[in-house]
């Protein structure tokens, strides 16, 4: 086994373990863990199966397997960042709505307090 292969196997398995642990501890929601599990799974597969990368590279017509790895990982990271921006936008919208509802409710509560004040 190549030295680099051993390093990637250790790194990707450790990463997989980390994602697992975070989901179990409730620090990462399941729906966000899917992409990480999938991605790490692919990493683990190709760290064991070294011929596989060469095979896929030939299939795509990529001369250097490393370039294929870079291209695909950068693309996936970009798509995921976009997804996170969408999530942040949604959270901001909900946050605004909650803040407004809360402020309006405070007024209602003050009004009620005034009404039930003992004479």
């Amino acid at each position: 086994m190549l030295r680099i292969q051993i390093i990637t196997i250790i790194a990707s398995v450790a990463f997989l373990f980390l994602v697992f642990r975070m989901v179990v501890k409730g620090r990462l929601r399941e729906e966000y863990s899917i992409i990480w599990l999938l991605f790490t799974g692919i990493l683990v597969t190709f760290s064991f199966w070294e011929k596989g990368l060469l095979l896929v590279s030939n299939l795509f017509g990529v001369y250097l397997p490393a370039n294929l790895v870079f291209t695909i990982s950068i693309f996936i990271a970009l798509v995921y960042l976009l997804h996170l921006s969408v999530v942040a936008s949604k959270l901001q919208k909900q946050n605004k709505l909650l803040a407004q509802e809360m402020a309006l409710m405070k007024i209602e509560i003050e009004k009620m307090k005034e009404e039930i004040k003992p004479e």
């Binding site: 605004k96 407004q100 402020a103 405070k106 007024i107």
Partner: peptide
């Protein structure tokens, strides 16, 4: 005055909208 006290900073738009929501209500 009627005081709408926002718990987080929403920016001018969010603040004006809170007032409009109150007016609607």
């Amino acid at each position: 005055v009627i005081l709408i006290d926002l718990p987080v900073n929403l920016g001018i738009g969010g603040a004006v909208q809170s007032g409009l929501k109150y007016a609607l209500l």
